[in-house]
Design a protein around this nucleic acid. Structure first.
Lengths: 152, 152
DNA sequence: TTGCTCCTCACGTCACGTGAGGTGGC
DNA sequence: TTGCTCCTCACGTCACGTGAGGTGGC
């Protein structure tokens, strides 16, 4: 019924991962299809694609495990609810403050981790460059050019 | 016999990982103790500590699995051999060129991956900063200060 | 000699991979 | 109706974690 809904194989290919991975995320309560057909076939749309991209980012780039990611996504979901309800009232101010504080704490922790990772990677990159320079020196002594792609 | 050799529990604690992890690395041919006591107790020295640090770096920062790391370390080992034998001769020039080319290719691939990761992390960091700014706006509307650590 | 640390099985766990065997939808 | 994709078990794998039960070294 939803416009342009996709089957599991289609979104798996689009995302570059296996159908099994998407079913597993559903199994551990990280991802819910937008609907099911009468026969049980899963349907997904753009919202699910974005959610999986977020999961993968948190997993591969940040190194969180799926339990931690579930917590973060649920905090995100709660903040989205907060923003939605903010304009129409209904939730107490105290509750809104509480959720906002939690989201802010998560954000701060993630910023710390991202900056730390960037620092480590930059040090690592410098080490690689120094090594490459050493290789080039030895290459000159051996009479070859490591950067001549036409060679070979 | 080697000066200042350490037992498995000592280097595990120094490295912040479990004895089991070090035994596992040995099991999959990534790490060999410098010696064993008559009773079978493993001994390690500084060279092993450095090797484990390298393994962890490649694993956590670069996202390689242990098979890939074994390949990289063996390439490193071969290059160390090359450098050692370089001054005393014995290996053919062709063989030296071959090993050097391989090490250079590995270095280039790793540099590409490191730079790609840094780029992703910087985009991610910007997104986090934008989100934090939004949180701060909502916080003002709710009459709280998210960065007042004295509060609470 | 007493503890604390070491040893080797060996089963458990997390995040999926990989068939086995069967039903569903353009 | 024919394929190709989907479905649900269910066992396998990688990188360790976690005891069980026993021996070793300052």
């Amino acid at each position: 019924m939803t416009e342009s809904s996709l089957r599991i194989g289609q979104i798996a290919e689009r995302l570059g991962l296996s159908p099994r991975t998407l079913r597993y995320y559903e199994e551990v309560d990280l991802l819910t299809p937008s609907s099911y057909s009468a026969g049980g076939t899963r349907r997904y749309d753009e919202a699910q694609v974005q959610r999986v991209l977020r999961i993968r980012e948190l997993q591969a780039v940040m190194g969180f495990n799926l339990d931690e990611i579930r917590e973060i996504l649920h905090a995100d979901d709660r903040l989205a609810d907060l923003r939605a309800e903010y304009t129409e009232g209904g939730v107490s101010v105290e509750r809104r403050q509480e959720i906002l504080r939690e989201a802010s704490r998560i954000n701060s922790r993630m910023q710390e981790q991202v900056l730390a990772k960037i620092g480590i990677l930059q040090v690592f990159q410098h080490e690689l460059e120094e090594k490459a320079a050493q290789y080039d020196e030895v290459a000159v002594e051996l009479g070859i050019d490591l950067h001549d792609n036409a060679e070979r």
